[in-house]
């Protein structure tokens, strides 16, 4: 009931859960060997920004549209192509349908 066989692989969520639980226990145990120097309510809680005044949390949070700027910027050419494909014009939607129809006609042997 728990296990899943793919013919070449095996997956058991209960076994996986047990392993994750043991891993967390080990991590918790390792954490116990560290030094506890953190003190609540002291300046340790404030963020360290060298040389600059601290911004408000609203200003510091990166907005969703900027979050993967690096990725989208490095793939600018691809994204320009994708954006130009998504025109929002229903005529273009039909055009893509016709193009796929034509490709399949050729491959299947109609044309």
């Amino acid at each position: 009931m728990f296990g899943l066989e793919s013919g070449s692989g095996f997956w058991n969520p209960v076994l996986w859960g047990c392993i994750i639980f043991i891993a967390f226990l080990l991590l918790y145990g390792i954490r116990g060997f560290g030094r506890s120097t953190y003190k609540k309510g002291t300046e340790q809680e404030s963020s360290f920004l060298s040389g600059n005044p601290e911004s408000t949390p609203e200003e510091m949070q990166v907005k969703a549209s900027n979050l993967y700027w690096g990725f989208t910027s490095s793939m600018k050419t691809l994204y320009n192509g994708l954006r130009s494909m998504h025109t929002g014009d229903v005529g273009d939607y039909v055009l893509w349908f016709i193009i796929i129809l034509a490709i399949l006609f050729v491959v299947i042997g109609v044309m």
């Binding site: 273009d92 796929i100 006609f105």
Partner: peptide, 18 residues
């Protein structure tokens, strides 16, 4: 071809997904 392409469009297969 007609049946597969139309149903693929209705299912949202690219590039007929828009």
């Amino acid at each position: 071809v007609l049946l597969v392409v139309v149903l693929a469009m209705k299912a949202g297969v690219v590039p007929m997904h828009m």
